[in-house]
């Protein structure tokens, strides 16, 4: 394993009476890491810290080897960072090109010709070259998200922090996104938060699951899938021991939970592992 590019050690964050993060700790190395968790788990708060726009109340955070709390080091991080917020804003009266160009200027790309080449490159990468001259207010929601992704890719940053980048994208765009992110060289770090477990299974080398401001699981997608090993089976009806069950296209019920003896076990997916992990915790809390 290479040296970690993100080091998170016992981080806490509160907003008034709400505790968003409580003792979060894990390391991330180069490659793609997925952050999974239900709404309110603390994913966005953690990503904002990685994007240097929010400071932890307590704990230690290092990004690319630097401390974001120190002004000079924070600037060094920002020069190597690409960030796509969960709810990206836009200058609606700007064209897609103008907006990405504006961000490129704020990223200190001051050589006009080189900057325009870079803006064209990232717009081309997200498939927006044909609409780059169109005003953002005239673009669809999916196109706007791709504009947000394009600005994050400016300058091929060492650390790319993406908060739900595939939300609102159609299947073709999601596949294109996977292609785009996976094409990045191995020495870059991508941290992405998503509700799409398929994206994590398809893209990520590591996965972190969060719940209630804490890390519930950290490992490979295969290890998360293994959580559901022997706990997914098909039956004619919903089994009493199933925690979750739904009728599939074939008519059989896919049950997830404690499989009865002799059950028709099937290979679990990463989503099964995630659902069981989060469900187990909720079940344990209920029981407590």
């Amino acid at each position: 394993m290479t040296a970690p590019t993100i080091e998170i050690d016992d981080i806490h964050k509160r907003f008034g009476h709400t505790t968003a993060l409580r003792g979060v700790a894990f390391d991330v190395s180069a490659g793609i890491t997925g952050l999974l968790g239900p709404n309110g788990a603390g994913k966005t708060t953690l990503l904002r810290m990685m994007a240097t726009v929010l400071a932890p109340d307590d704990g230690r955070l290092r990004l690319l080897g630097w401390d974001p709390h120190a002004a000079d080091e924070r600037l060094a991080i920002r020069r190597r960072l690409g960030y796509m917020p969960q709810e990206p804003g836009f200058h609606r009266s700007f064209t897609a090109f103008e907006f990405v160009d504006y961000v490129a200027i704020l990223k200190e790309m001051t050589d006009r010709r080189a900057r325009h080449d870079e803006v064209r490159r990232v717009l081309d990468a997200v498939g927006l070259e044909s609409v780059s001259g169109r005003k953002i207010k005239a673009l669809s929601g999916g196109m706007r998200r791709r504009v947000a992704l394009a600005q994050a890719l400016l300058g091929d940053p060492d650390l790319l922090v993406l908060d739900e980048p595939t939300a609102g994208l159609d299947p073709e765009q999601r596949l294109r996104f996977r292609e785009l992110v996976s094409d990045r060289t191995a020495d870059r770090t991508v941290m992405l938060s998503t509700h799409q477990t398929e994206d994590v299974a398809a893209l990520c080398q590591r996965v972190v699951v969060m719940l209630d401001g804490q890390v519930l699981f950290e490992g490979t997608p295969g290890e998360l899938t293994d959580v559901a090993e022997g706990r997914v089976w098909l039956a004619d009806a919903r089994a009493p021991s199933a925690r979750l069950s739904w009728r599939t296209a074939s008519g059989a019920h896919r049950n997830i939970g404690e499989a009865p003896a002799g059950a028709d076990l099937v290979a679990p997916t990463l989503e099964d592992g995630y659902l069981l992990l989060v469900g187990d915790r909720a079940f344990a809390e209920e029981a407590a």
Binding site: R48, V53, K107, E108
Partner: peptide, 20 residues
């Protein structure tokens, strides 16, 4: 414009300060 268009978070992650 930046405040109205909810861009303060994104711009806050960029190396150029608000003064720019």
């Amino acid at each position: 414009r930046a405040r109205r268009d909810h861009l303060l978070e994104l711009f806050g992650s960029l190396p150029s300060p608000a003064e720019a």
